[in-house]
Design a protein around this nucleic acid. Structure first.
Length: 416
RNA sequence: GCGAUCGUAGCUCAGCUGGUUAGAGCACUGGUUUGUGGUACCAGGGGUCGUGGGUUCAAGUCCCAUCGGUCGCCCCA
């Protein structure tokens, strides 16, 4: 007997249904609601882009670009890449569509992103992000608005409690260069004490040694020069304006002077909302300012700030999944009722009620089905009811049943 | 990419030191009740024990490989 091999789900991808889907949807719905309150426009961008869009903006030496991107040649021989994040694609869209005429723009989007990584809890190869960006605003008020939006979202999702906002500044380009040079000098002086990982970081991304978890690195990282002494007056003022704005908006934050970002395009403000409830995947929402990004993609110098959050991670932090709600289930009995039920069902739905029909098995099975669907009411419809022009409406929570005229059904159920 | 750990029905698991046709609860289907659910009782379907090799008279149980999940590192949301 030949057996057909069923194809497997690809590693690191997910099929989401039921409770997981409800949690997922609650995050997306919450984001969509809050984003409107802050007057962010929804934008749709492609799932894949020319590889250069990501390689040039994120930095060739970053892990994301050098070993985590889904990159392939299309049939025309062009190198394309499944988006590993949103920011680069949005920046590219800003340039190609000439959106500078609309600047400053407040944009929001959500959808799948792809990273070829080893899967873990809260980490997938196709995962989903919500994303918010403000492009064309160099003012610290933009940073504040974005952080306030994030803060309100976490609050409305009911997960603000275990989550803290860690904030830092990376300074402007001048600051960052000076600080980076000082760090390289400091770490070079302690080469022989650093972990292997950090020796590698020293070549590719020395800033990341600062937040190393390796105990061997900690003393050296802790004694490294602080960015504060390198901040230009402008950079210092900028950061002060951001923190002052957050205080005014009532957003709690803590300074983490060792917080850096892995992607090359960040300047000034860098932040992470972190939790200890997700094991190693503690970062739940993160972002920062990327004033140099648009220019590096060939656009006019344009300021930008933004953040992204992993929908799966937020969903895992949610307390109770929203219950599925069905207002009524129609239970027809007999051939005449089966036909009549179609009309009643359509009427209920047109009246805005979530309604379904139990059409299999004997009455007991149908009632059980109504119950399993989580319906508030069963609308019972048999020959007797059709003769009288009234359906039996049973409240499935209390067990009470009352006759209701067919043409009054929608109104009665809407009121109940 | 590195290290550790796990992998028996849709789900949660039992299966002792290898030994007849692999079990339970929940879920599902049918029935007790061909017009009344959420309780109860009865019956049933569903597993090549992740996959592939090996050791053995005999492997769910031991060995190797591989795939997948989980945890940590790296990185990141």
């Amino acid at each position: 007997m030949a057996r057909i091999d069923t194809p497997n789900r690809i590693r690191g991808t997910q099929d989401i249904l039921g409770e997981d889907e409800r949690r997922f949807a609650r995050v997306v719905d919450g984001f969509d609601r809050v984003r409107r309150l802050y007057c962010f426009d929804r934008v749709e961008i492609p799932v894949f882009e020319a590889t250069a869009v990501f390689a040039r903006s994120l930095g060739e030496t970053t892990d994301v670009v050098s070993k985590e991107m889904y990159t392939f040649e299309d049939r025309g021989g062009d190198s394309v890449t499944l988006r590993p994040e949103f920011t680069a694609g949005i920046a590219r869209a800003f340039i190609t569509n000439g959106w500078q005429q609309h600047a400053p723009m407040k944009l929001a989007t959500h959808g799948p992103v792809f990273r070829y990584e080893r899967p873990q809890k809260g980490r997938y190869r196709q995962f989903h992000q919500i994303d918010a960006e403000i492009i064309g605003a160099a003012e610290p008020a933009a940073d504040v608005e974005l952080l306030t939006l994030a803060d309100q979202l976490l609050d409305e999702l009911g997960i603000a409690d275990g989550v803290t906002l860690q904030l830092n500044t990376l300074g402007d380009a001048e600051t960052r260069e000076a600080w980076r040079a000082a760090l390289v000098e400091h770490f070079n002086a302690h080469r022989d004490e650093l972990s292997e990982d950090s020796l590698d970081r020293l070549e590719r991304n020395p800033l990341r040694i600062l937040d190393s978890k390796d105990p061997r690195d900690r003393p050296i990282a802790d004694s490294a020069p602080d960015i504060d002494q390198f901040l230009t007056p402008e950079a210092s003022d900028f950061f002060a304006a951001v923190t002052g704005g957050l205080d005014a908006a009532g957003v709690a934050w803590t300074r983490n002077s060792r917080l850096v970002r892995g992607l090359d395009y960040y300047r000034h403000t860098a932040f992470e909302f972190v939790t200890d409830r997700l094991g190693a995947q503690g970062t739940v929402l993160a972002g920062g300012r990327y004033d140099g990004l648009i220019e590096s993609l060939g656009g006019n110098p344009t300021a930008g700030v933004g953040w992204a959050a992993g929908i799966e991670r937020l969903a895992m932090l949610l307390d109770e999944p929203a219950a599925k709600s069905v207002d009524a289930v129609v239970v027809p009995l007999g051939d005449a009722a089966a036909t009549r039920a179609q009309g009643i069902l359509a009427e209920l739905r047109r009246a805005g009620l979530a309604a379904d029909m139990a059409f299999k098995g004997n009455m007991k099975k149908r009632m059980a089905k109504a119950d399993a669907l989580g319906a508030r009411y069963a609308v019972i419809l048999g020959d007797d009811e059709i003769a009288k022009g009234e359906a039996g409406v049973k409240n499935l929570a209390t067990g009470e049943q009352q006759p209701v005229a067919f043409d009054a059904l929608a109104k009665a159920l809407n009121a109940a």
